[in-house]
Simulated scan of single mutants.
Amino acid sequence: MVRQLLDPANAVTATGLGLSALGIHCAIAGFPEIGVAVALWALLADHLDGVVARRTRGRRAETCHVGKNLDSFADLVSAGVFPAVTSIIVGHGSALSVAAGTILVLASALRLSYFNVFGSPGGRFIGVPTTYVVPVTAIIFLLRPIIPEAIFPNLFAVVLIVVAILHIAPLRVPKTAGVMYFVITAFCVAASIMLATRGLA
């Protein structure tokens, strides 16, 4: 099994999964902004592994299948479990934060399972991709200083519920391509620096 991680694309995916676990640890330790910053780098790894996979010659079919499943698990952790745990932490275990986290994880798992079976017909995703929740989470935390702390946890929980619904909604979403890769990369780098700086202050 470990030999599958010698594949460059799978190694990148595993790195992203490790970053997601680190982000969860940061949130639990009381540093959610740093956790979100780390999760943004997990998102970058998710975008990079596909590029690496397409440029790696001679990949065995078994390695590709392992990579596809590993990528789905990594997405579930970074875009499902991490935001859910963060919501519960900032919400101090409120009923709304627990409900939001549960709904998000279930919707993420269903969305990823559906994608693994049906793919993206016509070159478009069905439902909003799970990874979208990571930059949405980053935006919410970037705005945290101007949001009254009394409503921030509930606002974050509601946003996660809305995104969860969009995951399984019958929407046709274009794939990320071209200049959007650079936009996402620039946002992830800039936002992660800002959040990490704030978290360490």
Rank of each mutant, 00 (worst) to 15 (best):
R57K: 14
G58N: 15
G58V: 12
A61Y: 11
E62S: 12
T63G: 13
C64S: 12
C64W: 14
G67T: 08
K68A: 09
N69M: 12
N69H: 14
N69L: 12
N69W: 15
D71K: 05
D71E: 08
S72A: 15
F73S: 09
A74F: 15
A74I: 11
D75I: 13
D75S: 13
D75N: 05
L76H: 09
L76N: 03
L76E: 06
S78F: 13
G80N: 01
V81N: 02
P83L: 06
A84G: 11
V85C: 03
S87R: 02
I89L: 02
G91N: 05
H92M: 09
H92W: 08
G93N: 09
S94A: 08
A95E: 08
L96Q: 05
L96I: 12
S97L: 10
A99S: 15
G101W: 11
T102L: 12
T102C: 15
I103F: 14
I103R: 04
L104H: 03
L104E: 01
V105T: 03
V105E: 04
V105A: 15
A107I: 02
A107Y: 02
S108E: 02
S108W: 06
S108I: 10
A109D: 07
A109R: 13
L110N: 03
L110Q: 08
R111A: 06
S113G: 15
F115R: 04
N116R: 00
F118Y: 09
F118C: 01
F118N: 03
S120T: 11
P121N: 12
G122C: 06
G123C: 13
R124V: 14
R124H: 11
G127I: 03
P129V: 10
T130K: 01
T131L: 07
V133N: 06
P135C: 04
P135T: 02
V136R: 01
V136D: 01
T137Q: 13
T137C: 12
A138S: 11
A138F: 08
I139F: 02
F141R: 01
F141G: 01
L142V: 05
R144T: 10
R144H: 08
P145W: 10
P145Q: 06
I147Q: 15
A150Y: 11
I151R: 15
I151G: 11
I151Q: 12
F152K: 04
P153Q: 14
P153H: 12
P153N: 11
N154T: 13
N154F: 15
N154Q: 10
N154A: 14
F156P: 00
A157F: 06
A157H: 04
A157K: 04
A157N: 05
V158W: 07
V158Y: 05
V159A: 04
L160R: 01
L160K: 04
I161T: 03
V162H: 00
A164H: 04
I165G: 11
L166H: 02
L166Y: 07
I168V: 13
I168C: 03
I168R: 00
A169Q: 01
A169H: 03
A169E: 01
A169T: 04
A169F: 05
P170R: 06
L171V: 10
L171T: 06
V173I: 08
V173Y: 14
V173L: 11
